[in-house]
Amino acid sequence: MAKLSFLAGFGAGYVLGSKAGRERYEQIRRGWEHAKDDPRLQSIAGVAQAKADDALSSLRTRMGSEPPR
């Protein structure tokens, strides 16, 4: 999961900060469009979403069970 976040951040930073020109941007964009439809990536995204939902639920439970300060 950390690798996926790193790669997504690196890719976005490269695309946004790149001076390689439009051709390279289009190549990266096509690669992303192809990758985002990959069932493996969608599966990883689903697992990540479920973990984030669980973490948020746990945080809300802890925040609600603590006495106010």
Rank of each mutant, 00 (worst) to 15 (best):
M1C: 07
A2T: 11
A2V: 07
K3Y: 08
L4R: 15
L4H: 12
L4D: 10
S5E: 13
S5A: 11
S5Q: 13
S5Y: 10
S5D: 11
F6Q: 15
L7C: 10
L7K: 13
L7S: 09
G9F: 02
F10V: 05
G11I: 04
A12G: 06
A12E: 07
G13Y: 04
Y14Q: 04
V15A: 12
L16S: 12
L16D: 12
L16W: 07
L16K: 15
S18G: 01
R22L: 11
E23M: 06
E23A: 15
E23P: 00
E23S: 13
R24Y: 06
Y25R: 10
E26R: 04
Q27A: 09
Q27T: 05
Q27M: 06
R29C: 02
R29G: 00
R29F: 02
G31A: 09
G31E: 09
G31L: 05
G31D: 07
G31T: 04
W32M: 13
W32E: 02
E33K: 03
E33F: 01
E33T: 02
A35C: 02
K36I: 10
K36F: 10
D37Q: 13
L41E: 06
L41R: 09
Q42S: 06
Q42L: 15
I44A: 13
I44D: 02
A45L: 15
A48E: 15
A48Q: 11
Q49V: 11
A50T: 09
K51I: 14
A52C: 06
A52H: 07
D53F: 01
D53G: 01
D53L: 04
D54M: 09
L56D: 05
S57Y: 05
S58F: 05
S58Y: 04
S58C: 02
S58T: 10
L59W: 09
R60M: 11
R60K: 15
T61N: 08
R62A: 06
E66L: 11
E66I: 12
E66R: 15
P67L: 02
P68Q: 03
P68R: 06
R69E: 08
R69T: 14
